[in-house]
Design a binder for these strands. Structure first.
Length: 423
DNA sequence: TCTGGGGTCCTAGGACCC
DNA sequence: TCTGGGGTCCTAGGACCC
């Protein structure tokens, strides 16, 4: 193996973050709920063993939670985001070629190492991250990213591996692929795995042995890449760049259903505010904004429950008041009395770097220097004094639609007033 | 009663151009 | 009856990821 990829993945990331700052949670089963406390989105190892499934609605899990005295937390993204940065910085101290793939995983490219030393490298990563951040991680090493994912999974589920697995020789790869259910392969989701199983393809090993033409036909080029990667031919490279996002979405379910237009406009205004903030954080402007209002899809199954509108902005902008005004007009058009709204979202697309904006000489509404410095001060104030210190009046003060967060832990690392205390 | 919030890539098909 | 051949751009929708 001359070039190899490592996948470093935090174990039960959200649960581990909570534990770093609250030792009473050690060894106790723990679940983390989605925004709005709707579903279980993360579980500690103990909670998994007790049979709490991923994604289950909280009310369905409640009997088990009671029975086993499982600890419950609302998701605390301020805390998780900060912990994630610490882990990634630690990884960068050990490997220059790092691709941060998600909040809790990163790929590293390892060139010119001897097979023997991959294992040592994995152990070193684990030890350093644990020591510097308190976060347990697992490491999988293999000739391709797809195989590194599988190696990582194997390291996690096989305690004897002590959190590190190297897939080097063909014999070992084959043995592990035979044990890997096809739906555990990266890139194979619910739909494809159903199709594959209908064709008698049960394991990663079976999938690897399918002819290219059939794979291409049933799973398109992305599927073919997956199969080649399983065969050890690398098709996916390390991507270290952080390109600007192509779309920025801000959405929330409401704490309780919203039926009046004013509150709906407030909610959408505040989502617009957040989206615009993200947009400016990457020094970009948007050329389109779309607003979607959502009612319950469970209430009248099959009937329409999403109502959306997209507006093209002749002059791309990142100006919050301007965007808020447009999204408010969308709400007015979409709103129908009598509907019970559960959720809304605001999406910004057609995103281009600020400097590349075509100036429109005859219009005052382009994103000019005055706009820019106003927004810059707004962001600076909110960063210094906390979110929503300054906001547009349209986003409402009382915000009755705010999400439920009954079990929120403190933002230990990002708020002075919520630092952990030692007695 | 109660069901998350972000993202990516690919493809097909239509509009439109020369 | 016969009815070009190529291209681009955009959108909607479907698949996937964490």
């Amino acid at each position: 193996m001359s070039t190899a990829y490592a996948l470093i993945d935090c174990n039960n990331f959200y649960a581990s973050c909570e534990r770093v700052f609250d030792p009473t949670l050690k060894n106790r089963p723990l679940v983390i709920l989605s925004n709005n406390d709707g579903c279980v989105i993360a579980r500690s190892g103990e909670a998994k063993e007790l049979g709490i499934p991923m994604g289950i609605p909280e009310f369905k899990a409640r009997p088990l939670i009671k029975k086993h005295n499982i600890a419950v937390r609302s998701s605390n993204y301020a805390l998780y985001g900060d912990m994630s940065n610490r882990v990634m910085e630690t990884l960068r101290s050990l490997t220059p070629n790092l691709e941060v793939y998600s909040i809790d995983e990163a790929f590293a490219e390892l060139s010119n190492r001897l097979t023997g030393s991959f294992w040592d490298y994995g152990v070193e990563i684990r030890e350093r991250v644990l020591q510097w951040t308190g976060m347990p991680v697992s490491v999988g090493v293999a000739p391709t990213k797809t195989l590194a994912k599988i190696a990582n999974e194997y390291a996690k589920s096989t305690p004897e591996r002590e959190g590190v697995m190297v897939l080097g020789s063909n014999q070992v790869i084959e043995k592990v692929l035979r044990q890997t259910p096809v739906d555990d392969v990266w890139g194979i989701g619910r739909n494809y795995s159903k199709t594959l199983r209908e064709h008698g393809i049960e394991t990663a090993f079976d999938l690897r042995n399918q002819p290219d033409s059939w794979v291409r036909k049933t799973m398109k080029v992305t599927g073919l890449r997956t199969v080649w990667e399983l065969r050890g031919r690398s098709c996916l490279e390390i991507d270290e760049t952080t390109e600007p996002r192509k779309g920025i979405l801000s959405s929330r379910s409401f704490g309780k259903t919203v039926t009046d237009c004013r509150h709906l406009k407030e909610a959408v205004a505040s989502f617009t505010e957040r989206a615009a903030e993200k947009l400016r954080a990457q020094y970009c402007v948007a050329s389109n904004i779309s607003v979607v209002l959502v009612t319950s899809k469970y209430q009248n199954p099959g009937s329409k429950y999403k109502f959306g509108l997209e507006i093209h902005l002749p002059n791309p902008t990142a100006n919050t008041p301007r965007l808020t005004k447009i999204s408010g007009m969308c709400v007015e058009q979409l709103f129908e009395p009598g509907r019970h709204y559960k959720k809304a979202w605001v999406m910004l697309t057609g995103i281009i770097p600020q400097q590349e904006v075509q100036r429109d000489l005859f219009s005052e509404s382009s994103y000019d220097n005055k706009d820019y410095s106003l927004m810059e001060s707004l962001d600076a104030i909110n960063q210094k004094f906390g979110k929503r210190t300054m906001m547009t009046a349209g986003s409402g003060i009382d915000q009755p639609w705010q999400m439920k967060q009954q079990f929120l832990s403190r933002r230990y690392t990002t708020r002075w007033d919520e630092l952990p205390e030692v007695r």
